[in-house]
């Protein structure tokens, strides 16, 4: 458990640095630290599929963010009279979160960390190779047992790209 806590501490440190740096570029770089440590965390929790996806998507997102941020202009601090509002928001968030966490932790029994409830997933682990023939169990879940989810995911990505292209084009196409 200790390496996991160290990794979580690094992630919190990276996001704190991202909030408190002056320039936008260093904020983006320190946010990428969070993504990298998240990838290592997934490797530590023995999910290489998610780790590969996390690192590659993080790289592409970082490239796009740097391309957007690195304009050469100095960005000054944003000033405003929003301290009172943010203080109220933080207090309200802490109260509501604490209430729900207290309710959840006292009245619902969670399984211990690393020992999940194995009702449906037991079936997947036992029958995955036999039913779908795929040696990678994650694939047998993603494209075998839960292929509808993957279809929805692909459709969402397609619709998002379509909307982006329509909005960014600006000028309509002439025949």
């Amino acid at each position: 458990m200790l390496p996991l806590y160290l990794l979580l501490f690094l992630m919190i440190l990276g996001s704190l640095v991202a909030v408190h740096t002056r320039t936008l570029l260093s904020a983006v770089i320190s946010l990428s630290l969070v993504g990298l440590v998240l990838c290592v965390t997934f490797l530590y929790l023995q999910t290489p599929d998610i780790a590969i996806t996390q690192i590659i998507v993080e790289i592409v997102a970082l490239v796009i963010l740097i391309r957007a941020v690195a304009t050469g202009k100095e960005v000054s601090d944003i000033k405003g009279k929003k301290e009172v509002f943010s203080l109220v928001a933080v207090i309200a968030f802490i109260v509501i979160f604490g209430y729900f966490a207290y309710q959840a932790l006292t009245f619902i029994e969670f399984p211990k960390f690393g020992y999940p409830l194995m009702r449906v997933s037991q079936f997947y682990v036992e029958e995955g190779l036999k039913k779908t023939g795929s040696a990678n169990l994650i694939t047998s879940v993603v494209l075998g047992f839960r292929a509808y989810d993957t279809l929805g995911e692909v459709t969402v990505l397609f619709a998002a790209v379509l909307g982006t292209l329509v909005i960014l084009r600006g000028v309509g196409r002439k025949k």
Partner: peptide, 12 residues
């Protein structure tokens, strides 16, 4: 379907 990975990370 054999090793970790799949369509999404490979496409990216």
């Amino acid at each position: 379907h054999l090793t970790p990975g799949g369509g999404f990370p490979g496409g990216v």
